[in-house]
Write a protein that binds this DNA or RNA. Sequence first.
DNA 1: AAAGCAATTCACAAAACTGTGAATAGTGTG
DNA 2: CACACTATTCACAGTTTTGTGAATTGCTTT
Lengths: 170, 170
Amino acid sequence: MADQGGELARARFVEQFALVLNESGMQRMPARVFAYVLASDAQTHTAAELAEGLQVSPAAISGAVRLLVDMSMLVRDRAPGDRVDHYRIYSDDIWMTVVGRQESMYRHIDTLLSNGLRTLAPGPGHRRVHETREFYRFVESQFDTLATRWEAHRAALRTSREPVRSASGE
Amino acid sequence: MADQGGELARARFVEQFALVLNESGMQRMPARVFAYVLASDAQTHTAAELAEGLQVSPAAISGAVRLLVDMSMLVRDRAPGDRVDHYRIYSDDIWMTVVGRQESMYRHIDTLLSNGLRTLAPGPGHRRVHETREFYRFVESQFDTLATRWEAHRAALRTSREPVRSASGE
DNA sequence: AAAGCAATTCACAAAACTGTGAATAGTGTG
DNA sequence: CACACTATTCACAGTTTTGTGAATTGCTTT
């Protein structure tokens, strides 16, 4: 039972990283699917491949990919004349996409806190919630900065890491 | 019985915000307890008060506060000659404390990704995981900046807010 | 040292979550 | 137009989580 190319190690890594994502609020199965797609060498995966690779039923994949597509982490596409869907990482810079996604969540939290503040009588509690809102707003305001700096950082990494690449399709 | 001073509204807010914290990875009961302490006017709370306020058993409070104390979000203290523990928000700048807490998590993720990279054969998967690690590292490196800026922002808010209302009571 | 409380622990029941298998719907092909 | 095959939905079962009630522990006071 030779582990050709360390696929076993890869599987282990996928589970570990999925756990991290899980603890950050992502549901278990979507986390596993995403980690799998991220760490795999293939550029696209069919549902059947994912089910096989993760040893779960197609039903589980169906739900997971729907969520991931909804949250813009994966894209589903199907070449004309093909019968199966293919999934791949949504963006070349997926993590920035993820950060971008947080914004709607922050908006939600902001309104929740704002509504709370309106109903809370003045006092220490009100003061703490107010400061909480300020903090969330501040963090959100830093996302732009983060994006800019990451872009630069990333570009720097790319040029220093590179020149291994030929012309045609990736 | 009238809802004196909107305590009902406060309770509702507590539940909503607890849900937010919950979705960010905090367990349900600790999230409720923390939200309650945050939004309450009292500076300290006994376990009995928390149990009463949240309508749960003392046993549930015991577990929740232990976790919150462990994660440095609440402090437990007991005045000499007092028989009960009193809990209060750990820091005046609690959210920065929370951010600080993330660092150990990031260290863990970093080693996990690094170990993964060592076992992964070169290829697209390796490349993506590598970039993932770079991203996590980058975000972590931004925490310092965040802390500094927040400090300034907060100070500014304080001074601009202070002269508005100063007197007693309200 | 015994009583009185608060805090904690533990076994257990209720509730929530997760993934499966089977049925259903949808789509392209011969 | 019917077939072949993929994707999705749904009821259900296994598992995990969560909070309770009943002890148990530990401290303080008398």
